[in-house]
């Protein structure tokens, strides 16, 4: 998500935004709206709430722009904001009648049609909807603490040390949760092992 060789880094965009360059903020939104929305969706399992949280996360970035001191990566900062908003949203305990991503196959199918894997190569993109559905179900089946660590690391690229700070958890515990999550996913996705082996 951070800038490539020719693109400005996220942190530089934040500096520019703080100096009044609103185009820099627009670029930040372009880079992060999809991963933050995906993270919120996996966390809350609710499209509308995920949308609200994503928008609120960017507004927090606007309001707290002066607080960003470059002591951590921008991605860590913005995922920490989003994660806290998700927790707040869950605590509200409001159960709206929104379509759940993984509630039923009938509802998940159109959503999965929009699923893309930007990180993956052409082979990965060729994976069928069956595999993506399986991954989504497996992630949804993880315990909350393991899913949180898994999403922050896999989706946000947040280092384990930063996850430990964000979640106020010892770093070794974070790594253990990540390992348990992977082992659990391993069992859930064992039927796709041959497929994955063929891709390597």
């Amino acid at each position: 998500m951070t800038g490539g060789l020719t693109e400005p880094a996220d942190e530089m965009l934040m500096v520019r935004y703080r100096r009044g360059d609103r185009a820099a903020f627009a670029e930040i939104v372009r880079r992060y709206q999809t991963p933050l929305y995906t993270f919120s969706l996996r966390y809350l399992r609710d499209k509308d709430r995920a949308r609200d949280v994503t928008q609120e996360a960017f507004l927090r970035v606007v309001r707290r722009a002066e607080e960003f001191k470059h002591e951590s990566r921008f991605s860590t900062w913005v995922f920490a904001i989003t994660r806290n908003l998700c927790i707040d949203e869950l605590r509200k305990g409001r159960h709206r009648n929104h379509a759940s991503l993984d509630a039923s196959s009938g509802e998940s199918a159109p959503l999965m049609d929009r699923v893309s894997s930007a990180e993956a190569g052409p082979e990965r993109r060729a994976l069928g909807a069956e595999l993506q559905d399986g991954i989504t179900r497996a992630i949804a089946g993880l315990p909350d603490d393991q899913r949180e660590v898994f999403l922050l690391r896999q989706l946000g690229g947040v280092p384990f040390a930063d996850i430990a700070k964000i979640t106020d958890t010892p770093e070794n515990t974070v790594k253990s949760r990540m390992r348990y999550a992977l082992e659990r996913l391993q069992k859930e996705l064992s039927e796709f092992e041959e497929y994955a082996r063929a891709l390597r």
Binding site: R179, E183, Q186, L189, R197
Partner: peptide
């Protein structure tokens, strides 16, 4: 096994509205 799982368990990105 862990590496294979990590490789395959890429979280599908969901395009926002």
């Amino acid at each position: 096994k862990l590496r294979a799982t990590k490789d395959i368990a890429i979280v599908p990105q969901v395009e926002p509205p």
